[in-house]
Amino acid sequence: MTRATKAGAAAKSPLGFCLHDHDACVRDALVAAETRCAAGGLRLTPVRRRVLELLLQEHRALGAYAILDRLREEGFGSQPPVAYRALDFLVANGLAHKIERLNAFIACVHPDEGHTPAFMICRLCDAVAETYSSPARGALGDAARASGFRIERTVVEAEGLCPTCITEAEG
């Protein structure tokens, strides 16, 4: 495998359960968000940016009220619409995803690429890793084509144990 191929494979691997330079991860995601907003004529307001930063701090999903509590502590406002509007903007523009199982949100780890995400959620610590999904190419896509159904949106969430929780359970 060439160095470029290894780098590409690493970029596509699930982020959240693996060791990585988290400062660079956050920095790169913020640059990608700023670039995407500038290219699309979108406003990354201070509140939207701060919500994205909060989501990027850990690879765990945060609920809207946890985000609102942090915003309130920092003087950004205390009404639920403050958090929900920022989250709606981030999700609508591919900068964050909603984790349905947890009714919470996570920053997108591939904001500079169009993709269909899939999530691996640790049932013990709620850590979340994002990876790629291609439901239109798998069994679901085959069933949809056979029945004449057109898939417009999928949510793939797998529940299990992260490497840290497995190690702690076995140790």
Rank of each mutant, 00 (worst) to 15 (best):
C37G: 00
D69K: 13
A144F: 02
L71C: 11
V128K: 03
C122W: 08
G8N: 13
L140T: 09
T5C: 01
E170P: 01
E53M: 04
G148V: 08
N103H: 13
C25I: 05
G16Y: 01
K98W: 07
S133E: 10
D112I: 03
C125T: 05
M120N: 08
R137C: 08
R85L: 10
T164R: 11
G75K: 00
A146L: 15
S147A: 15
G63M: 10
A143S: 12
G160E: 11
L52Y: 04
F17P: 06
H22D: 12
I67K: 01
E73M: 09
L56R: 08
H110C: 08
L124M: 03
A136G: 14
L68R: 00
L15D: 06
V156E: 09
S13T: 14
L90P: 00
R43F: 10
D21V: 00
R153M: 08
R72L: 06
Y84W: 12
A169S: 14
A143E: 12
R43M: 10
L87T: 04
G41S: 06
E74C: 07
V91D: 07
A139V: 14
Y84S: 04
L95Y: 02
L19K: 11
A32M: 01
A64N: 00
A86S: 14
G138M: 03
R72A: 10
R49T: 09
T167Q: 13
C122P: 06
T116Q: 14
H59D: 02
E100N: 08
T131E: 06
H59R: 14
M1N: 09
F76T: 05
A61C: 01
Q57A: 15
R150L: 14
A66S: 15
A107F: 01
L90S: 10
L71D: 05
D28V: 03
A107S: 08
Y132V: 10
H115K: 09
A139F: 10
L52I: 12
T45A: 10
V31G: 02
L68D: 09
A39V: 06
T35V: 13
D69E: 15
F17E: 00
A33G: 02
R153K: 15
R50T: 09
A92N: 13
